[in-house]
Amino acid sequence: MFKLSKESEDFVKKELSRYEAKYSAIIPSLFRVQKDHGWVPPEAVSVLAKLMEIPEAHINEVLYFYTMFNKRPVGKIHAQVCCNISCAMNGGRELADALCKSFNVQDGVMSADGKITVSRVECLGSCDTAPMMQVNDRYIENLTPELAVRKLKEMGA
């Protein structure tokens, strides 16, 4: 059963009055849920809807529109490898494949031990340092497959 922590509930309430429009609090609130749980479980939608007095369908629309919200569990380490044009030209796709192989996971699917998810993503705006990836909140740039594997292992993957 999904439950929002007291602190998160307070956060949501504060966000509700932070912006000119109440609905603007949806994105920050979903991010908060994701911060607490690693992803946004479907039950969170009803819980937020009740707390924020915003229709469920509306919150769900927002949740499913934006790709940064994880609609299913992700690993403790979420390696998002850019495969857009400049990275693709510099081996971004091969990097993603190498990571999937090295950690024995499928693109976008969490490893069995819950440690890592490798996802291919679109341009992250770090094209001069291609190929690169975003691990949780931060960018790791100028990668080779070997370097990326090593860095992720150092982080505990």
Binding site: P42, E43, V45, P55, E56, A57, I59, E61, Y64, T67
Partner: peptide
């Protein structure tokens, strides 16, 4: 009554309701 929404993006968009509503 706001039960319906369009979820997802591009040609993956689908009409739907949320569980419990």
């Amino acid at each position: 009554t706001n039960e319906l929404g369009i979820f997802n993006r591009g040609d993956r968009c689908e009409i739907g309701t949320v569980a419990g509503k």
